[in-house]
Design a protein around this nucleic acid. Sequence first.
DNA 1: GATGAATGAGAGTTCATTCAT
DNA 2: GATGAATGAACTCTCATTCAT
Lengths: 205, 205, 205, 205
Amino acid sequence: MKQKTKRHTDPALAQARREQVLAAAADCFRRKGYHGAGMAEISKTAGMSAGHIYNYFTNKEAIIESIIERDMEEMFSIFQEFEDMPGDLVTILLDGLDHAVERHTDIDQGALNLEMLAEAARNNKVASLLHATDVLARERMRQLLVGERGPLKDIADDELTGRIDVMFAMIGGLLLRKMLNPDLDQQAVLKALRPTMKTLLLPFA
Amino acid sequence: MKQKTKRHTDPALAQARREQVLAAAADCFRRKGYHGAGMAEISKTAGMSAGHIYNYFTNKEAIIESIIERDMEEMFSIFQEFEDMPGDLVTILLDGLDHAVERHTDIDQGALNLEMLAEAARNNKVASLLHATDVLARERMRQLLVGERGPLKDIADDELTGRIDVMFAMIGGLLLRKMLNPDLDQQAVLKALRPTMKTLLLPFA
Amino acid sequence: MKQKTKRHTDPALAQARREQVLAAAADCFRRKGYHGAGMAEISKTAGMSAGHIYNYFTNKEAIIESIIERDMEEMFSIFQEFEDMPGDLVTILLDGLDHAVERHTDIDQGALNLEMLAEAARNNKVASLLHATDVLARERMRQLLVGERGPLKDIADDELTGRIDVMFAMIGGLLLRKMLNPDLDQQAVLKALRPTMKTLLLPFA
Amino acid sequence: MKQKTKRHTDPALAQARREQVLAAAADCFRRKGYHGAGMAEISKTAGMSAGHIYNYFTNKEAIIESIIERDMEEMFSIFQEFEDMPGDLVTILLDGLDHAVERHTDIDQGALNLEMLAEAARNNKVASLLHATDVLARERMRQLLVGERGPLKDIADDELTGRIDVMFAMIGGLLLRKMLNPDLDQQAVLKALRPTMKTLLLPFA
DNA sequence: GATGAATGAGAGTTCATTCAT
DNA sequence: GATGAATGAACTCTCATTCAT
């Protein structure tokens, strides 16, 4: 429901317009929040009239939904990268922490993510999308960890579940840290993060 | 700006009224979010007229600001408890995880906290309050860890900084986990969380 | 659903405000039509802010519904008058034609009635109200005609049905006549109308 | 104003296009009403782009005006039929009632007619067209009734005027009846309608 | 001739805030 | 102190109309 089914004669143009809107909306949501940003402001940022946006999105909600879906796809590509990398998985994941910290301490993206989470608390569609995304992310992670190359092939299922949630909490929590502590020292965080993640990636003693 | 400077003839009554409003507002924000809850609903929940609220708070923003201040005080009392407990600090902190998980997976409180964080991205007053609270919380934690009974008396300053941020990220991140995965298994999380926190509380090998 | 259930401290004031709005809206609908008249215009005509109207009516639709209900009540009082009058019913009804013509050639009321009928074609709630009103009106008329004093006690049921519909068509149709022929001569109409109605009120030869 | 004065290179094609639009618009207005039907829907129904319609009609109003003109012509052809029929005029007119009832209880056409009448209350052009049509219709009827074969050659002029208005009210009113009472029994109506119309077509006793 | 992308004014509605009582 | 009637600006969304192609 997040994209108008309306046919456009020039699909490339339509896609370009859609992306214009998504970029503008993401920007506005970051700065003003979902409710704080009006369609007027979004349209001005997107460089098109407010009315025209409705040729590409059924309503404001559909815009944030599309943004979420876009993010979802991006997340999958990250998992794919991990899966495609050769070598020891623990090493790969620990090395990946640098990027993860980078990504989760981008204050603009963080603000946007918070908006989406806050919106999820009162908008079922948004909540469903986020839940679905999370289910898939956990599943991908699980398969990574118990797969052929996985370091946790032998642990109990619910222990694995707990570990994954704690990993995600830790990484996702960085976003909150950056909001609450803008001076967050990434290098210091990484130094503490690596041994901690290692604990989670290997069987407990 | 969060409290009217207006003089009230009966300061005790005024204080009671303020707390009535704060409790009602927190309740409404939890259920509907900051933007979703209207002054009408808050006033009904508080058992007083909408207009009357403005005798105690200059506007809606001032209400959420006051709620944050109240929460801040609550957090300090938790640190105080840790400090007052006798025995081994690592044990105390690890035992405290049960309560921490409990507190951070309360979905209503989580929704409210997310609202406040999201609001911080665009409301300077809210941001300042949260930042100040966080500075104090980190400081309390630091003193706990490097204090007389502390397990990390000997590590470098910036390493300690990193560890604290990761601990806070991990605990705070649980809030996000619960929002994204409402079926979160608290016991499984605790089982993974304890060894992980222990890694952070003791010098790395 | 046409009246807000919201409690008002001063019901008399509330009622007065409601009537202010209804009068203003009826006026605007007459002049501009239901769709042509905006809430802004109605509120200006009513002498209150647009927002305030929503304290008394849930939405614009509820306003036209209330107008219809008001008209419905007026219609019943007219039937009541007929029923309360002593004397020969045929004479009473024929004498009532003067008022009927008067009422149905009021061009403002006519315009408003047409709006309501046109709106009924696309608004189910309005249609239901009008249908319900019409059912009741036909029933009242039927009881008048077959009642103790009625002139058509002995005719078949479906003949009676047909007669009532033709009577109502004839009277209601005057409204259309006045719209199409503003110079309509009321006296001339009455001269033709009386014998015609008499034909309908007495058994056919 | 109802037709663009713009010159078209192929007038026949232009005329065809105009009729395409009129047919589509009439269809849409019937189903959704004048205000309920958008130019987008009309253009889709007409099988041409919205913009192109503006090459044939200055605006939406011009479309309904043209529809009225078309209907006007249709009405005249009905009178012509009566005039061309041989035999007793009273019989012809009474026999014509079947068709009249049929035509005036078509609920879609009725909705369209109501739209036009309602529109007349606020659109002078529409009002003028309808008035002019009505003048002509009354004149045709008058000539039928007082003509060579007419049954009312000897009655006073204003009595005739009144009778015609009542006849038209009765027939036109059926449209209202059908809107208010969709279950209207056509046969029962006809049984009551014939004697009533006969009363109007013959000198009063 | 024909398209439909694009506009922008204006629609109905909500809600934080004010103020007379 | 307390009320809630009243305001009005801002919101999302629609749609007749224009115009570059």
